[in-house]
Each structure stands twice: as structure tokens, then as C-alpha cells.
Design a binder for these strands. Sequence first.
DNA 1: CTGTTAGCGCATTCAA
DNA 2: TTGAATGCGCTAACAG
Lengths: 337, 337
Amino acid sequence: MEHKVPTIKEIAKKLNISVSTVSRALHDHPSIGLRTKMQVQKLAAEMNYEPNQTAIQFKQGKTFTLGLILPNLREEYFSSAISGVEDAAFKHNYNVLIGQSHDLVDRERNILETMRKHRVDGVLVSISKQTNSIAHFEQLDKYNIPVVFFDRVPDVPNIHSVWCSLYYSTIEAVTFLFKKGHRQVAYIQGPQSLNIKNERLEGYIEAHKREKIAVNESLIVTTDLSKEGTEDAIEKLLSFKTRPTAILAFNDHVALDTIQYAKMKKLKINKDISVVSYANWPITSYLDSPPIASVEQFPYEQGSRATELLFKLLNTKLPEGSFPYENIVLKSELVIH
Amino acid sequence: MEHKVPTIKEIAKKLNISVSTVSRALHDHPSIGLRTKMQVQKLAAEMNYEPNQTAIQFKQGKTFTLGLILPNLREEYFSSAISGVEDAAFKHNYNVLIGQSHDLVDRERNILETMRKHRVDGVLVSISKQTNSIAHFEQLDKYNIPVVFFDRVPDVPNIHSVWCSLYYSTIEAVTFLFKKGHRQVAYIQGPQSLNIKNERLEGYIEAHKREKIAVNESLIVTTDLSKEGTEDAIEKLLSFKTRPTAILAFNDHVALDTIQYAKMKKLKINKDISVVSYANWPITSYLDSPPIASVEQFPYEQGSRATELLFKLLNTKLPEGSFPYENIVLKSELVIH
DNA sequence: CTGTTAGCGCATTCAA
DNA sequence: TTGAATGCGCTAACAG
């Protein structure tokens, strides 16, 4: 049972008027007589007319679709960001095409290619941890496709971005540990290939400075975010004569691996060793010994703000050359569990 | 710096040939002379020609886009399904438009409308827990948009579907508990509004039958999957004189809430009470007392199989009337932790 | 207030 | 082997 989808042409024929009149009537064009307008709209409704989006996209040279590239969807953190983007896009009648880079820069490039070929109107991206150059994003400029970086934002000038500042919350977090009597606070940092701002480290150092506690560089170790990488990092920390009594972990994933490993080594969490981290992952509340505090980064809001910024760019025709890059910084929040 | 995207028309002009020749040359049409073909392809490459997808979509009446509707993206379970769908779609050069119903049937309808208006070529869906009628999906038939249900599949005839059978794994899971000496095995089931097959319950009953243990109906309680709902359910179970010693939980989320509540009531997990569940959520390995076993449902594979089935439908032109509905059933697996 | 016309980029039918 | 012509559905410039 084939179903013929009605077009304005058929509406026009039935009413013995021209297609342009129909088009205008459907768009509430002011120059159309009330009578005609009503007639058209009535018939259109009866026929279940629906504009052919592909025709409109073609005609307008716009797809009303945004591309969203994320490292992965597995982390609840990024899923929240998606919701933020989707909700904002929905308000503007836009669709969202999602791609996962799986933290591989090659896939990131691939996805970007696909999205460009499919003529997305704009792109939102949280870069992969391998991404050290944003040349592939700068390419889009040639196609007049604006890009907004969010969350994992490359630390370079002349981009549009939305991120959540971690500096002050980190100071707060480390100070919180100092106040609890800890003096040896370690920091497990993420991969340094990450071309993003290093606010965690800066905050970590500043907190020491404020409390006049010397930074012990050997307490700063690195993980590639894999379970093994984190285990190596924590193992190193635990091997010191004077073990750290508290750890600032790059994120809740790292915190979980850290806690698991420490437990295996028979350490009592939040007694022998305390953990503070980032992301404020809801699941940690199911743990017997979750991190005692975590920095909330508001991924939903980052997503929606980034999307709004993108729409602003899409709707702004700027004079050649001038281009005020916008960088929106949200505030993170230390949540004590 | 505006960037003019090249079209076949310009290629044609530069080579003093017609657009149709260019079009054919680019498509390796057999009737084009090797010389011309080479010329065209060379110039196209030099000019960075890329076919305008929106034009092709319009012309072909196809968008090369699939719609994917999921209850949410928050659960790692569904994220895995997405990866399965994306990877399969990518192979066919298709894009995927994702929507979250948030388990609300109204949103599910909305998303479906949007997708239909954007003329997706086909739809994949895991229904919301409110979805009791699939009328809105049947509508798509009129527009020749095939629908494949997967994972959460409505229990009605004449649909295409892919799901993971839980019957045998459930029998295995319950029997596993019996073998461990449990005699009072409770079952916390999901919302009965869910219009899906009730294989968990069937397996639960069959396991009792096989071991000749009477089913105690009061041990079958219901949660709406919310934390509170689950707490009410488990509270009821714990209030009985002869408390169950084991629980079959609807999924790992329910299991986590169950375990947390039981702990709060000072029960020793896997001693006073054992828990077995569904989904095999990786995160449970971080718990001190995870479910002792979980049924793996292979969401990635469900997603990819469903997508392949959808492509099969898209590429099959069937004679009017005839329509062999396909229902692919995968096998689940009990994973002992 | 309404109709005529052109054109977006491409694939394809028909003609040469 | 190639070209000319057509049309997909819609919008908008131009003409009345």
C-alpha cells in the first residue's frame, strides 16, 4: 500500500491557484488574502501535508542539523552533555548527529569528514585525548561551518568555547584535604597529550602555596585513564616511604580504580587514604567507600550553553574579518559526600 | 573568506563537456570513455569536489539517515547498543539520528514525528516503559519507513524485531541459586506496563518447576525501576517472617538499589542475601559486594543485528502484500562473578 | 493580493 | 560515447 506524500503542487492544483500562493499561505505571508490563506491551510491539514524537509534543506542550503562529537557515550558524564545539546537544539528545531571518537583522533577526523559531507550547519565537540592539533576543525572554516568546543577544550587562541573552570574548586578540594590534616596530598593527573587547560594542576599548586605547604613533585603522577595506567600510578605513590594520605584523582573513573587498588592493598579508604575527584558521578554513591568529595562540572549545562553559542554564531552574519571569539566559562562546584 | 563549494556544473564548464557526462564519469558509468573519465576525475579531485548530499537526498528521496530511539543514553547498556548501531550504519554510509524518550511515550511520539518529518529512511527503537501501543510506529508504514524493534520489544505480532532471549539464562540463574542451597528466591520484576515479553518471569517459574520447588507468589514484587520503587519492593520482601535468601533483580540498577538498601538494613550481601541480576554492568565490579551473577544481553550485538535487519528491509522491494516479518532472537549468557 | 518563472545540484531518460 | 532536457519540492525575485 503505497502512500503518496502530498506536495504544495497538488494543493495548488486542487484549489486552482499557484504553488507560490500556496507556499506563501502556508508561511503566513502577510500579502496573502485571509480567504485564500484559510482555504489553503484547511486543505493542507486535510491532506496531511507536510513540507518535504529534504527539498527545503536543498533549497536553503541548510540541513538544520548539528554535529556533536564526543569521546564516548559510555560515560554518564557525556550522556548528560548530550541531553543538554539535544534539548537546546530541539528548541531551535534542529536535529543532532552524534559521533563518538572513542578518544582516537583518527576517528575524530573521520566523523568530522562525514558530518561535513552531510553538510551539518555547525559542530560541537569535546576533543579526544589524542587531539593535539585542531587543524581538522579549522578546515571547517572554509566551509562556513562554525565550531564550538566544549568541556574538553583545546588550549589555543581564536576558538569559540564553553568549559567549566576547575581552578577554584581544585583549590577548595585540596584545601579541604589540608584542613582535614592531610599533608601529603598526591595528584593523579590525566594524559599530558591532552591539549587542554591544566587547571587541576594549577589549583593543586596554588592550594599548596596558600597553605604554605611545599609541593612534592614526586606526588604528582600520571595515568592514561586506563585501569592499568591508574594502577601503575597509584602503585608508585604507595611505594614511597611516606605514603600520601590523600589523593586528588583526575576523575571518578580514576578514583574508582584507585580505590579498588588501594583496597586490594589492604588500605582503609578515607582512613589510611582519602580520595577526592572530579565529575561527581552518581554511581559512586553505591560504593561502600566513595570519594569523600567530587567536583561537579555540570555537563548538561555545558552542552546547552555550547549549543546556544553555536546558534548565536549561526544567526550572526559578521562583516568580513571581524570575529569576536567567545569563551564561556562556567563555575564548577565541590560536592562533599 | 567565503569558500565556493564546487559543483559538477563547474567541472563541466571547465572541461567543455556536459554535466551529465561529468555525473556519469564520477559514477564510473561504463559508457563513458576512459579519457574523459580520467579527465573528469582528475579535475574533480583537484577542485576538491564533493557531491552535495542535500541535493542527492532530495533527488533520490532518501536521506541515508536512520533514526534510533532509546529510553535513555545514561545507561551504559544503551550506549553500547548505540555503538552497535553506529558501526553497522557506518558500513553502509548511513548516519544515525539519536533520540531519547526518557521512558515517556509522549516524547517517544514526538521524536518519531521529528524523525519522520526529517525523512529518515528507517527507524530502530527500544520502546519506553510507558509504551503500551505501537500505533505511532505502525503509522510509519504509510510513509514506507520500516521499523525494527530491538531489545525492549513489544509483545505483538507482525513486527520486525531483534532481542535477546532471557528465558534459558533465567532458568540457569535461578537454578544456580537453588544449587547454592537457596529455597526462598524472590524476584523483583519491572513495571508491568512494559509491553514486552516476560521471559524473566517465565524462566523464574520454569526453574522452580524443574527443581520441584513451589513458587511463592508473595516473593514476586514489582518496581517501577526508580530507587524508591525498588526500596518499597525490597522492604516488602524483608518484612516477611521467612525472608528470602536470594533475589533475582530486574537489572543491575535494581540490583544496586537492592543491595544498598539491604546493607542499610545490616544484611550481609551474598551471605544473608544473594543477588543475581541482568545487564552485567561493568561498574558493578567496583562494588564490595556486587551481584554474584548477571545475565549478559549483548546490547552491542543487538544494535548491530537490528541495523543489519533494517538495511535488509531497506534494500528489499517486496511484492504488494507479502511481508515476511523477521524476528531475530539472540541468546543471553549467565556470567558468574 | 496573486501568478509566472527561475533555479538550487544532481541523476536519468531520451535523443543523437 | 556524449549531450540536451527534465524534474525532484520548494522559495523568492519579479511582474502584474
